Simulated assay, not measured.
Amino acid sequence: MAKPNKKGPVRTVDIFCANCKAKLFKYRKGGKGSLIKCFIERISVDHTNNQTHCPECEQEFSRKTLIRGAPALKIVGNKVTFK
Rank of each mutant, 00 (worst) to 15 (best):
K29C: 12
K6R: 12
P9S: 15
E58R: 13
R63G: 00
V45Y: 04
R63Y: 04
G31F: 11
K29M: 14
K79Q: 06
T52H: 05
Y27W: 12
T65F: 10
R42F: 13
L73E: 10
Y27I: 09
R68L: 08
V45R: 10
E56T: 07
P4W: 07
T12Y: 12
C17G: 00
K32M: 09
V13E: 14
R28Y: 13
A72I: 09
K3N: 09
S44D: 14
R11Y: 09
T81C: 09
E41A: 14
I40P: 12
S44G: 05
V76S: 01
C17W: 00
K37D: 02
Q59G: 05
E41N: 15
F82N: 07
F25N: 08
T65E: 11
C20Q: 01
C17H: 00
K29D: 10
S62H: 03
N49H: 10
L66S: 10
G77W: 00
Q59N: 03
G30D: 10
I67Y: 13
L73A: 06
F61C: 00
K74T: 01
V45L: 13
T12A: 12
P4E: 11
V10G: 09
K7A: 14
G77R: 08
V76T: 03
I75L: 11
L35S: 04
C57E: 02
E58D: 10
P55G: 01
K32S: 11
R68N: 06
E60Q: 12
R11L: 09
A70C: 13
I43E: 14
V76N: 04
E41I: 10
Q51G: 06
A18C: 04
T48S: 09
H47L: 05
A2S: 03
I36T: 05
V76Q: 05
E56A: 02
F61W: 06
I67Q: 06
E58M: 12
K29R: 15
D14V: 03
E58L: 13
V76C: 01
E60S: 00
S44A: 14
R42M: 07
A2Y: 02
I43R: 13
A18F: 03
H47V: 02
K21C: 07
T12M: 12
Q51R: 15
I40E: 15
C54L: 02
I75M: 06
V76A: 01
N49A: 07
E58K: 13
G33C: 02
S44W: 05
G77L: 02
V45K: 11
N50P: 05
D46I: 05
A22G: 00
G77E: 09
Y27P: 12
F25Q: 06
P9G: 15
G69Y: 06
K74F: 00
R11I: 11
N50R: 10
H47T: 01
I36W: 01
P55F: 04
H53G: 02
H53Q: 08
T48D: 10
T81Q: 11
A18H: 04
V80Q: 00
T81D: 11
F61A: 00
D14E: 09
I15F: 03
R63M: 03
I43C: 12
